[in-house]
Design a protein around this nucleic acid. Structure first.
Length: 796
RNA sequence: GCCCCCGUAGCUCAGUGGAUAGAGCGGUACUCCGACGAAGUUACAGGUCCCGGGUUCGAAUCCCGGCGGGGGCACCA
């Protein structure tokens, strides 16, 4: 506690560390794992990447979750905010590799074990930054039990799930076309691919047909006839270099122009390979020439066509992003872009390019590395999703999981209903290594929690798969793996299922949907009853807030400037059910509110202290009036403010429970400014000073008081001020302040906790006090109407 | 291509069937008075509620069609 006389301003920088330390020491953030989940209130934090530092999204979501947690903790629930970080496979590996490069070494040089050791060291060093930063905004997480998605216990959960799903036939290995990310040198999932619009050249290329077979008979003799007499086909492509891997040409079976070509054979230029002409209804007759080159090894659609028609797969692009030996001597080793130019050049030399046009289309890029995705065939591990998705669809349909705001519900359902297999293996070193072992001798596959001694088949030596799991595989288990699952721990019983999950919409599929699927599959219960999807905070100009664009605003800078309460208030006040622009004004408004509340309390307490002839405080309510049983309103303004207070108490709780944080915050601001300070404190000033009520106008606030009295119906009932009245006034004022401060605590915890130490002599923490509840006996419509009339009169 | 959201005061946003459409910030004027001066109070100014049609006694709000902006999903060479 800091003497109130000393400063006329609330000083966040002085107060915040002191208050936070008291909270931590109190143990309030760390609940005992007792009882059942139904009695408690728990939230699993979206685990930030260990590579990360706090950005606006964290700050907003931290504020939201903390409001919920503090509100329910005060309401008497056993409350746990599960804390932890995510190992973030690709991001972390890339960051550490960058550091290694700067040292002139590489992960290859260190070897796998050495590299993993390095990452763990790195994590010890930098991995806790973000947790420390969460403390700055006042997040009341359970810091005593921090989890990490790569801890031993967590790993056991991951392995348990993998092995189970494998034996249930949901996890399988396949040679399939995947999104290869040459940047991170790994396959990535569909969700990690983003499409970018790009201008390219669409080349039309003529392939000759082998002589013989049905004549090529286009309508009206339009059929192209090449000089060799066999005719030709003309295909269109934006990726001429992939033609080296063509293994067929396709036409639509209903295409009158070309269907007779089916069964004939084309000759692949530059290569000479014979390509069957096939009929497949994937081909769009109206696009290009209506004749399609089929490259099963490098195009997802062609891959499917290839499977349907049992086509050969010729991989001409390797995992290094360069042309492989199968591309032929002439092109092997070239980058894709060089090969494209070279192929075009060669085709042009042969006179095979019949048209070139500008073409705008979508090109896949890796969300992780930013490099262009190279679709290619690779042996990877996949997960069947349909069987997992079905119950997760039901859970949202029947409301066991409620998504707020509900327009995200449809998006979720739509995606889930069209879900596709998930590629879960990654060619990285940092992550959960697959619990898969191959016999070095016979190749037999063992999937087990621990390495088998020998191959069950031939007694050979089993070797563990080199790959690790997609980071989101482990994240999907977050709400229960953090609580000790698969053990039946007291934590799990006390806090699972969790109450709510709060996140931005960008990871609805990547994470939220998968948690629901895994939660249902492995615990039989939904992992959370509600999902709150919060705003994305954009830069003030409406662009994305990002470091690279230079549009980022660092929440820590804002906390330094305005205080954590101000930033929390501001973020909550600007948030809504959709994306919003960052509003510096709202943060300043929060700062103003903290300062106003500080000064209002300071004023009231110092005044009451001096009124009671005591020059110092604390002036606690129970010290003023032992056995205090509630406020005793004496004047109309007392009845009015007490009545208004009940309304804001009810509203604030209801708005928080509705996830309407903006109105909860702004409502508090309005009450404190427009009712408590501008009117009640001003009206009451003369009474606090011991002047007669309704006394002569003497300027200033007394003047206003007099005018209010004149406007009131009871103007003539002004009574002389007695000691009783002043004590009753003090009691009312303190009751109002204590209630207001407690009410605002979830939104602006620091200033309210600081004020509480002045308003309460017990020495207890506000964070552990009961949350105010509306006392309907204090609602007084008559007083409200009367005082509103008085206020109007004064305004006139 | 399909789907979702948004368009209200100078700015950021509330309001989503009922009266003269609101707040904060900014602007102007005032105040200098007993907490708060990188402050406080009060007042004033400021709006074809994107456009056009429709439903209704009544539309910013519901419906249809545009225009503009943002986002998600999708394998179209």
């Amino acid at each position: 506690m800091h003497p109130l006389e000393d400063t006329t301003r609330f000083e966040p920088a002085e107060v915040e560390p002191r208050i936070f330390a008291r909270w931590l020491d109190s143990g309030l953030f760390h609940p005992e794992p007792e009882g059942e989940a139904g009695e408690s209130y728990s939230i699993a934090i979206p685990p930030p990447n260990i590579t990360g530092s706090l950005h606006m999204g964290h700050a907003l979501n931290g504020s939201i979750q903390d409001v919920l947690i503090r509100r329910h903790r005060m309401a008497g629930r056993r409350t746990k905010w599960i804390l932890g970080t995510d190992h973030a496979g690709i991001a972390t590996q890339a960051q550490v590799e960058r550091a290694l490069r700067a040292e002139g070494t590489s992960r290859q040089e260190l070897g796998r074990e050495g590299f993993e050791r390095r990452v763990w060291e790195w994590r010890e060093h930098y991995g806790h930054t973000i947790v420390e930063q969460l403390k700055r905004i006042g997040a009341s997480c359970d810091y005593a039990e921090e989890r990490f998605t790569l801890d031993d216990a967590y790993h056991r959960a991951v392995v348990e799930v993998f092995v189970a799903l494998y034996h249930q036939g949901l996890i399988y290995r396949d040679r399939y076309i995947v999104n290869w990310d040459p940047g991170s040198h790994s396959a990535i999932s569909d969700l990690e691919v983003e499409q970018r619009r790009e201008r390219d050249t669409l080349y039309s290329i003529r392939y000759d047909l082998v002589e013989g077979g049905a004549a090529c008979q286009g309508p009206a003799g339009r059929a192209p006839r090449a000089s060799d007499g066999g005719g030709s086909v003309t295909i269109a492509t934006v990726r001429p270099e992939t033609m080296l891997g063509d293994t067929a040409v396709a036409v639509h079976p209903d295409d009158e122009r070309y269907r007779a070509l089916a069964g004939r054979t084309a000759i692949l230029p530059l290569v000479g390979r014979h390509l069957p002409v096939i009929a497949d209804d994937y081909v769009r007759m109206e696009f290009g020439t209506g004749q399609l080159k089929v490259t099963p090894a490098h195009d997802p659609n062609d891959f499917e066509i290839g499977r349907r028609h049992d086509l050969e797969q010729v991989s001409v692009i390797g995992e290094d992003g360069r042309m492989s030996a199968e591309a032929g001597e002439r092109f092997a080793g070239m980058t894709v872009m060089d090969a494209r130019a070279a192929v075009v050049e060669a085709l042009r030399g042969e006179g095979r390019i019949v048209a070139e046009e500008e073409y705008e289309h979508e090109v896949p890029y890796s969300h992780r590395s930013g490099e262009r995705i190279e679709p290619l065939i690779s042996l990877q591990w996949f997960m069947h999703m349909n069987e997992l998705a079905a119950p997760a669809i039901d859970a949202v349909r029947d409301g066991r999981v409620r998504i707020v705001p509900d327009n995200h519900r449809r998006v979720y359902l739509e995606w889930m209903e069209n879900i596709r297999p998930w590629c879960i293996s990654r060619q990285l070193w940092w992550g959960h290594r697959l619990p898969v072992y191959y016999c070095a001798t016979c190749g037999h596959v063992h999937v087990a929690a621990s390495a088998p001694e020998r191959c069950a088949q031939c007694g050979g030596e089993p070797r563990q798969d080199e790959d690790v799991l997609d980071t989101w595989f482990s994240s999907a288990l977050w709400p229960f793996a953090t609580l000790g699952w698969p053990q039946h721990t007291p934590q799990l019983r006390a806090f699972y299922p969790t109450s709510v999950l709060s996140t931005a919409r960008d990871i609805l599929f990547l994470w939220v949907a998968r948690m629901i699927m895994m939660g249902l599959r492995f615990t039989g219960e939904v992992p959370f009853a509600e999902v709150y999807i919060h705003s994305v905070i954009q830069a003030p100009d409406g662009r994305r807030m990002s470091k690279s664009l230079g549009t980022g605003i660092d929440p820590l800078d804002e906390i330094d400037r305005h205080g954590a309460d101000a930033v929390r208030f501001g973020l909550l006040a600007m948030s809504s059910s959709q994306d919003v622009r960052y509003s510096a004004e709202k943060v300043r408004q929060g700062q103003a509110l903290a300062n106003k509340l500080f000064n209002a309390t300071r004023f009231a307490l110092l005044r009451i202290a001096s009124m009671r002839g005591s020059p110092t405080h604390p002036v606690a309510l129970d010290a003023i009036e032992p056995g205090w049983a509630g406020p005793r309103p004496r004047a109309i303004e007392d009845r009015w403010i007490l009545s208004r207070l009940q309304e804001i108490v009810a509203d604030t709780a209801a708005r928080i429970d509705d996830y309407d944080f903006s109105h909860a915050a702004l409502g508090l601001y309005d009450f404190v400014y427009a009712e408590l300070c501008d009117w009640y404190l001003e009206i009451v000033k003369p009474r606090l000073a011991g002047e007669p009520r309704g006394g002569a106008a003497q300027g200033g606030a007394g003047d206003r008081e007099a005018r209010v009295r004149t406007g009131s119906a009871n103007a003539n009932q002004a009574a002389s001020v007695e000691r009783n009245d002043r004590e009753a006034l003090a009691a009312t004022l303190l009751y109002v302040l204590r209630t207001t401060v407690a009410l605002a605590h979830p939104v602006i915890p620091f200033v309210t906790e600081e004020l509480w130490s002045h308003l309460d002599s017990s020495g207890g923490l506000l964070a552990g006090c009961p949350y105010p509840r509306a006392d309907t006996s204090l609602i007084d419509r008559d007083a409200e109407i009367e005082l509103e009339r008085a206020i109007e009169a004064v305004a006139l």
